[in-house]
C-alpha cells in the first residue's frame, strides 16, 4: 500500500498527487553487491513519483529514498530549509519531498549541486 498526497490547485481546479511507496527490490544500481557475498542485494526504500509533469512538460524523475539522509536536493540539502541535516522522521521527509514537487527548484539551490526542476504543472 502506498500513500498519496493530493495537491489541489484552486486557480486551475485540478489535482495532482505525489505518491510514496515503500518497496523492496533488487536495485540494478547495486550490481556490485552481487559479487559481495556478505552484502544483501535486496534493498528497501521509498519510491516517490508524481502525477503530471513539470511546468515545462518534462516528466519528473522517479526519486528513491533509501535513508532519512537522502535529502531531496541532490541528496545533499533539504528543500524547505537550507540544511544538510537528515530528516528527523518520515513525516518531515514526506512533507519536504512534496514541497519540492509543488515548487520546483533552481539549479544548485542552496549549493546542493542539483539540476533545475520545474514546479508541478496544474493547467
Amino acid at each position: 500500500m502506498a500513500i498519496s498526497v493530493q495537491i489541489y490547485s484552486n486557480a486551475n481546479s485540478t489535482s495532482r498527487t505525489v505518491t510514496f511507496d515503500f518497496v523492496g527490490d533488487i536495485l540494478a544500481a547495486n550490481d556490485a553487491d552481487f559479487t559481495n557475498v556478505s552484502a544483501s542485494c535486496n534493498a528497501f526504500y521509498f519510491k516517490v513519483t508524481a502525477s503530471g509533469t513539470q511546468d515545462n512538460g518534462v516528466a519528473f524523475p522517479v526519486k528513491l529514498v533509501r535513508s532519512l539522509s537522502d535529502l531531496v536536493l541532490n541528496k545533499q540539502k533539504q528543500r524547505m530549509v537550507n540544511t544538510a541535516n537528515a530528516y528527523t522522521d518520515i513525516r518531515s521527509m514526506v512533507i519536504d519531498y512534496t514541497y519540492d514537487y509543488i515548487n520546483g527548484h533552481a539549479a544548485n539551490l542552496n549549493g546542493s549541486g542539483c539540476t533545475y526542476q520545474g514546479p508541478l504543472k496544474f493547467r
Binding site: F22, G24, S40, N42, A43, F44, Y45, F46, V65, R66, S67
Partner: peptide, 9 residues
C-alpha cells in the same frame, strides 16, 4: 539503522 534496508533486516 543507517537506512531502511538495514532497518527492515
Amino acid at each position: 539503522a543507517l537506512n531502511f534496508t538495514e532497518l527492515f533486516d
